[in-house]
Design a protein around this nucleic acid. Sequence first.
DNA 1: TTTTCCCCTTGATAGAGGTCAAGCTCTTTT
DNA 2: AAAAGAGCTTGACCTCTATCAAGGGGAAAA
Lengths: 191, 191
Amino acid sequence: MDKYKGILDNIARYVKLSDDEIEQFISKLKTTRIKKRQFVIQPGFISDYRNYIVEGAVRVFYLDELGKEHTVSIGIEDWYFTDFYSYLNRSPAEYFAEALEDSLILQMRYDDVEELCARIHPLCQYFRLYSERALSYSLKRTISNISKTSEERYWEYVNKYPQIANRVPQYVLASYLGISPESLSRIRSRP
Amino acid sequence: MDKYKGILDNIARYVKLSDDEIEQFISKLKTTRIKKRQFVIQPGFISDYRNYIVEGAVRVFYLDELGKEHTVSIGIEDWYFTDFYSYLNRSPAEYFAEALEDSLILQMRYDDVEELCARIHPLCQYFRLYSERALSYSLKRTISNISKTSEERYWEYVNKYPQIANRVPQYVLASYLGISPESLSRIRSRP
DNA sequence: TTTTCCCCTTGATAGAGGTCAAGCTCTTTT
DNA sequence: AAAAGAGCTTGACCTCTATCAAGGGGAAAA
């Protein structure tokens, strides 16, 4: 099976690349295997890569001054992740990215992505369309955070991403939803 | 004074357009004046435009089943706004966009933007870079929402956007931060 | 197999912030 | 000038959820 199939299918959903363009794109992808509990991104280091998950699960989280974890994103197959702010601004990361399972990821360097986007119009289109879509989802999450109760946010998530909810530890989901693990446990046990 | 100066400067911060490309872009811009309290976007209608604020202030908000308002974004000069999900998917809007002051905005149709982006590579770059940046800010807001107290979020906002905090009604700011107007009033009066 | 660790659950308690209600000021409308 | 409306404040009360603490189950490690 081809480790590039997922990402190329993802691109094909938005734009059409020529064989040559696909070749150029793939030549920049770095394949990395990571073990469960291993960190891909750590605070203080620049998040050099945009990462695509071929196989496995990864979460990005922030560790606050009190030592509590707050999950920015939970990704499984066919998701991207990075510390976006660090990646874009070439500044030290603020977040951790941690493998929740043994995973296989494809990594794209910032410089390479920029160079490719400057040269290959359809690829630029792809990343534009992709990030516009991601932005619209992020805004929906924001509204959910400020307008819904913990219980509503939990069931909303379970309905939207049932396969992820069953795959990751509950305390991760809790920290993604902005709920304490204890409260999430109580929400789940409600009649 | 030139109503296009702001948006062209904004673009120039990211990419270089030729005079001809600028001409093509500007030809698609629709100038609209809106009065305070007027709605630009309403639930049920498709949000056809990406809107750029030349002068004035606009907020986008969601009205929940209980009749409470939750502000998605507050924009002033040099900001974009739209119901992004509706705009991208050509689906009925879920949000209102309401002028907080008499305003002057530039409107770009979805079809026109897509057509221009397909044809003009630098413009595609511009929107890509812009939305990637917007995405990184949106994720920061998400973390703030799930990890900070109301009081922390308020002062964070005031520090980051002092000119906006002083310009919009307090209840709007409260609904942006996910706080009740009463609580925000109490937070402000704390020693 | 036994031990250890990770994760989830359950109970008791406290506090942050929401809700309801009333009143006040300032602006806009009539 | 009077009336109405919009926005802010303050008080009383209550609910939701975070926190602290203890215990249990199951998987991984020894």
